[in-house]
């Protein structure tokens, strides 16, 4: 019986390998993206996956597991076999989920191994083309005058544009008329159509519209100006002191993934972030890879911790929950 099973297993298995890092990886690695294909996170994931495949010598395949604001994918990866063949690329949502979802099935700080940070994608504040204000000061005046009649579009609860909106409302100390859309596309449609006033979204989504002159743009949300939108000041420079938010991305592995496997992945990530093609494509997205010392597990954990603390009071005072 045992011999028979051995033979059967032998037929099933084609390559020869072990679970240790010496040979890792011996088959395709799955990088789970918690959002639908085609979005900004998916794009970041695909670019990095392709570059990581080169140095790992195996294909890194993208699996889109959308649902429940990204928590479904994170929950599944947390429970996956910790062998380095299932990874997660998640954005800022990893740090807001513990507050937005009161019944979260996993703990972002406990259930993962941390490969490293990938990129900080900037966001930009835009408005419909016929919006009265000329600059951020004008926007603030408009809000002071129209108060909650000012409408703000976002791509759905937990999305980057929703988070930026929450931070913005806290900064201007005024509740806006928040309109939730089901994705960036429909939200942008209503900005272009002039049906809704403001939106703050990733430059990946806004750059085309800004350059095409179809929307008004006021500022970017990063500490420094963005290279491919040089005419835009930062929020801080334009009049909202200290306002800063970026959509940071990190790569995670299930808890218990062997240390040497994680180290190999971190190494592959660092190499990928030096890849000229990645740098160029990121630049087109209006972003750049994080410095090499940030593409480490330690940096990712530190970022995750501070971000969880940053968002908790904001979400709680806004009283918006996703469950």
């Amino acid at each position: 019986m045992r011999k028979w099973l051995l033979a059967a297993a032998g037929i099933l298995a084609l390559g020869i390998s072990g679970a240790s890092a010496q040979n890792y990886p011996t088959r395709n690695i799955t990088l789970v993206i918690p959002f639908a294909a085609g979005g900004p996170t998916d794009t970041v994931g695909r670019l990095v996956a392709e570059a990581m495949s080169k140095s790992l010598g195996q294909q890194v395949i993208i699996e889109n597991l959308a649902g429940a604001g990204g928590t479904r994918a994170a929950g599944q990866v947390a429970k996956a076999t910790p062998d380095g063949y299932t990874l997660l690329l998640h954005h800022i949502g990893m740090s807001t989920a513990p507050t937005l979802y009161r019944k979260l099935a996993y703990n972002p700080l406990n259930d993962f191994e941390y490969v490293g940070l990938v990129t900080d994608a900037p966001m930009s504040l835009i408005a419909r083309l016929n919006f009265e204000a000329k600059d951020l000061k004008g926007v603030l005046e408009y809000i002071a005058k129209n108060k909650e009649k000012t409408s703000y579009a976002n791509a759905g609860i937990g999305s980057a544009s929703h988070l930026c909106g929450m931070l913005f409302q806290a900064a201007v100390k005024q509740q806006l008329n928040t309109v939730n859309y089901n994705g960036t596309g429909p939200a942008m449609n209503d900005i272009l159509g002039g049906h809704v006033d403001l939106m703050c979204d990733q430059t990946t989504n806004t750059t085309g519209q800004i350059k095409g002159g179809k929307v008004k743009a006021f500022a970017v949300t990063t500490k420094a100006r963005v290279k491919n939108l040089p005419e835009l000041p930062t929020m801080d420079q334009a009049g909202l002191a200290g306002f800063e938010v970026a959509v940071w991305h990190g790569i995670y592995a299930p808890k218990g993934t062997p240390k040497d496997v994680v180290a190999k992945l971190t190494d592959a990530l660092q190499k990928a972030l030096k890849d000229p093609k990645v740098i160029e494509s990121f630049a087109n997205l209006g972003t750049e890879p994080v410095p090499q010392d940030q593409a480490t597990g330690a940096a990712l954990v530190a970022k995750l911790k501070t971000e969880i603390e940053k968002w908790r009071p904001l979400i709680q005072s806004a009283g918006v929950y996703a469950d």
Binding site: A36, G38, G185, G208, K211, N284
Partner: peptide
């Protein structure tokens, strides 16, 4: 969603989708 995927493909090919295409 199909069109969203195509937009993603454009971005990966370093073309920023928008009115200027």
């Amino acid at each position: 969603p199909v069109m969203a995927l195509m937009l993603g493909a454009l971005i990966i090919h370093s073309i920023i989708p928008g009115p200027k295409v």
